[in-house]
């Protein structure tokens, strides 16, 4: 059969355009990595790897270092993961195994709506409502009861600090972990669950023995995606974490801190000395490397264990 010129032409154009668009997506990733490395090059050649351990950031004295922010990023994201993982998995279990179809159809979307709240609004809420509440009721109580543990030191005057940031990041990571683990638990074969229940085990024993143990890699990858969200959050953290130009490495959860992402947001528009912008790019490079590793790890787990595809949206 002879095909019209127009048809062959149209097929070619559509194919060409779609290939081009796909190449653009791949080029974007490369361009982002290149641009960040390029912007950081002056700071990288000046400081080398000692930048990672240097703990003060003071543009006035022309000293820059990422140590405090790496520490703050690990503390806030780690703390948020410690809180969000058990809560999120519990919500995933509730939605997939406990809730009736009708109740689940209401609560599931509500939990996902939590992820739709813009970070800047969550930060505003953190400044005005959560921070003062924490200072007046939670932080002072924890300090007087458990003050001998260095973690629960003197509460800050504003209620802003690492602890508030951890809670805000928990709220952000929670819906991601909950919705991925819900889909994961729903994908467990019903024969396995029914078989366990038929043996006379309780619901929880069935969950522990069948559901949780067969989905362990998927749970890990869900938690990693939640962690990835927490690591990269800039604005809400900047609003509630405090910051400062001195070294911010200390054990007190109620005092000021800062993270890589929030320091980038607060410093990039300033240009006090020539090294400032490259140093901010260096921070972005560190964050980029961490996020690439974390996301590739989650992807590797999904592929290695042949899990159903999952996206944190």
């Amino acid at each position: 059969m002879r095909r019209h010129f127009g048809d062959r032409f149209g097929d070619g154009v559509l194919f060409g355009l779609t290939v081009l668009a796909s190449l653009v997506a791949m080029a974007l990733i490369v361009a982002i990595i290149y641009q960040v490395i390029n912007g950081a090059s002056l700071a990288v050649s000046t400081y080398g790897l000692s930048f990672l351990g240097h703990t003060t950031w003071n543009p006035v004295t022309n000293t820059y270092g990422a140590g405090s922010f790496i520490y703050g990023t690990l503390v806030t994201s780690g703390g948020a993961l410690l809180l969000a993982a058990p809560l999120g998995i519990a919500i995933g279990l509730y939605l997939s195994l406990l809730a009736s179809r009708r109740v689940g159809a209401v609560i599931g979307p509500l939990v996902e709506l939590l992820a739709a709240i813009p970070s800047v609004i969550l930060g505003l809420w953190g400044i005005v409502i959560l921070g003062p509440f924490l200072r007046s009721s939670i932080e002072s109580a924890l300090h007087s009861a458990l003050g001998w543990i260095p973690l629960f030191g003197q509460a800050s005057l504003t209620g802003l600090g690492l602890f508030t940031a951890i809670l805000i990041l928990t709220i952000m990571a929670l819906p991601i972990i909950a919705s991925i683990t819900r889909d994961l638990f729903l994908s467990v074969a019903p024969e396995l669950k029914d078989g366990a229940l038929a043996l006379g085990v309780t619901r929880w024993e069935m969950v522990r023995g069948v559901v949780l143990s067969s989905t362990r890699p998927g749970i890990a990858s869900a938690c990693i995606l939640g962690l990835s969200r927490a690591l990269g959050e800039a604005i809400a953290v900047l609003q509630v974490i405090g910051g400062g130009s001195q070294s911010l490495i200390h054990g007190n959860l109620f005092a000021n801190g800062d993270t890589l992402a929030s320091r980038i947001a607060s410093q990039i528009l300033d240009n006090v000395t020539k090294l400032q912008t490259p140093s901010v790019f260096y921070l972005a490079l560190i964050l980029l490397v961490i996020e690439l590793i974390v996301n590739l790890a989650a992807r590797w787990i999904v592929h290695h264990y042949r899990l159903p595809d999952q996206a944190a949206t």
Binding site: M26, A261, I268, L287, L296, R299, A312, T313
Partner: peptide, 28 residues
């Protein structure tokens, strides 16, 4: 596979890093 990988990585990048990219590319 590589296209899906690129989309996943773009999706996983923090928005602040995308901001830094555009800052370096256009704003500077």
């Amino acid at each position: 596979a590589p296209i899906r990988l690129a989309l996943d990585l773009l999706n996983g990048l923090p928005s602040i890093v995308i901001g830094v990219f555009v800052f370096g590319l256009i704003v500077l």
